[in-house]
Design a protein around this nucleic acid. Sequence first.
DNA 1: TTCATAATTGTTTAACTATCGAAATATAAG
DNA 2: CTTATATTTCGATAGTTAAACAATTATGAA
Lengths: 105, 105
Amino acid sequence: MDSVEAVAKLSALAQPTRLAIYRLLVARGPEGVMAGGIAETLKVSPATLSFHFKTLSHAGLIGSRQDGRFVYYAANFQAMNAMVAYLTENCCGGDVSACQADGLI
Amino acid sequence: MDSVEAVAKLSALAQPTRLAIYRLLVARGPEGVMAGGIAETLKVSPATLSFHFKTLSHAGLIGSRQDGRFVYYAANFQAMNAMVAYLTENCCGGDVSACQADGLI
DNA sequence: TTCATAATTGTTTAACTATCGAAATATAAG
DNA sequence: CTTATATTTCGATAGTTAAACAATTATGAA
């Protein structure tokens, strides 16, 4: 994970509709949700939804698989974990015990 | 933590300069870093830096304390933890064991 | 093949954001 | 009090982004 990648992931999540989409996918887990289901749940137009999927997908936060006419999207959990690790990297100068003592991590 | 708050935090971090500032503060820990030190390290003009501090501060990600002419900024670790918790809330429908089995969290 | 449905792409517009330079505020030192 | 340093605020400009609508691609059913 580098700075550019982290910014892409954070930017992708820093938008109300995309954050809602992502949280829906996280809640569903690996099996994923089809695009139409999300459109219905969040009341977002197909075009707008597709735009947001593309952003999340390009950031590596979600993946997709096609099943007939339907496209299923699912969260990529490892990508999220890597992003969080990047944010807390070298926390408190690497002195993990000091960090934990302060309840910081 | 609600959606609005989470978007504010994610937006604040979704910018290269602010992400670098935040990571510097995380690495330093609770004692913080004075504004000038960050300006020097990151080669950012004072006006721009102040703008970014304001954004991070308004999002609740950092705090500040004045010491004479200097202002020290420090990361707010609890805010970050709350944000991460919001992102992974109800992961895999709340079935934590299934989530862990897939190595997702 | 023809029709209906699912999803994506392209275009335009409006709103937001980052950066800079100059000016202002605040604290400390001489 | 005057000067120097640290930080913030203001105003202008350039670049970026979300949303809506129409058009297009792709798959499945009649």
